[in-house]
Design a protein around this nucleic acid. Structure first.
Lengths: 225, 225
DNA sequence: CTAACATTGAACGCTTCCGTTCACTATTTC
DNA sequence: GAAATAGTGAACGGAAGCGTTCAATGTTAG
């Protein structure tokens, strides 16, 4: 009764290859409720973290019976796992979708970083980030997955970008890792400290875009050929 | 019985000026236990945050009766207030003590930033920082005090440093705020992302110092006259 | 229709922690 | 000495949340 199916999330992925497309008997789980539960879980998690997450609060906020939560996610751990998986997937997809060709390297980099920061500076995204940093000791496995889909993937993307920019002679051939971390740092400084601590409202889109453009300028000033 | 003394922390500060040095009757509170309670509170808080902080856990870890905690700090809120006050005081003092004269501006800045980051990169300090970022919604007053003693004070210190450096023609007279935030960003990038998420152990002292020196180099490359 | 599963609402026993009270001992001032 | 306060250990009633169970109803495949 502890782990009859381990996790309902990967149910379709775990389906036996020889009996595909055979629907399970009985009433199927309600996908909409599953989504509602995940959304509520995220909301509660942002405010309460790994250990504070109350399943009863999740059920209430999702407008669903507590038993349904256990039915769809087995467990508190299953709920957290599903949440982190969904968040990681979303983040990985978003980080990739942000980059597409433009004119000059400067224009490309500026536009990409602006779209990137429009995502990363969202209060909820930053909040999730902070929770993950705190969960390192107790939930390393989940943090690891999130890190791979988030920060690590971003680093890889920028790494590739730098390499091709060096090849195109758009920037000097300084150490790629140094350039990558410098760019990330300059982008990070885009967000004022008061905002990070929730003492000021987030920047308007225009202000954020301007700050990012300025950061890219500083970056190019450092590494222009 | 709710707030007979409001908060024992500021007891000496609140003493009437006309009846100073008159000791209170009866057995005085045990200062050592007070310190033990605060230390335990910090430890529990780093792991549990504002809402997860268990007073029973604090009492147990401090090796003290639960009643003593209530006796010395009135309240859960009083405990958190005292914790944040102590942390703010400590941080403010440390941030100031880090800077003292050296040879060149580069040497001065490098040494100061190295001592600064030796403090700021400590896992417990970073952890406290993350908890503060999360507590914005529910405990804005405490976060505000911490912010004033920490990030805001650091910003002021660097601001003054930049102004005098400009006056000495050690750096160009670019906008001071821009230079300050850029330096902070470059220092921030000193800490690898894996470390921030607790997936790698903190940098050794030598490695951290080297990274900081490199960050200062990049800063001076941007703003050398 | 029937078998199988989902969902609900309500209850269950259990644990943890809250903030408070009690009786008792220890320490300090007057 | 007496008065006043601090500290201990144990217990209190209550709140909240856990994970589970039950009976009843909804929905789906065969």
């Amino acid at each position: 009764m502890m782990t009859p199916d381990q996790s309902a999330i990967h149910q379709s992925a775990n389906a036996r290859p020889d009996e595909i497309r055979r629907p399970a008997p009985g009433r199927p789980p309600d996908a909409a409720k599953r989504r509602a539960i995940l959304a509520a879980t995220r909301s509660v998690f942002l405010a309460s973290g790994f250990d504070g997450l109350s399943i009863e609060a999740v059920a209430a906020q999702a407008g669903v019976s507590k038993v349904t939560v256990y039915n769809q996610f087995t467990d508190r751990a299953g709920l957290l796992t599903a949440l982190c998986a969904a968040e990681s997937e979303w983040m990985e997809a978003t980080l990739g979708d942000v980059w597409f060709a433009c004119g000059s390297f400067r224009a490309y980099l500026t536009a990409g970083c602006q779209r990137l920061m429009a995502f990363l500076s969202r209060p909820d995204v930053m909040n999730f980030d902070a929770q993950m940093q705190l969960g390192a000791k107790t939930h390393g496995h989940l943090v690891k997955a999130f890190f791979a889909a988030g920060p690590a993937k971003l680093q890889k993307i920028l790494h590739r970008t730098m390499i091709s920019a060096v090849a195109d002679q758009a920037i000097t051939d300084a150490p790629v890792d140094e350039m990558t971390s410098t760019l990330i740092a300059l982008l990070y400084a885009t967000q004022p400290a008061e905002v990070r601590f929730g003492l000021s409202p987030p920047l308007e889109d225009a202000a954020r875009d301007a700050a990012v453009a300025l950061a890219v300028s500083r970056f190019l000033r450092l590494y222009a050929p």
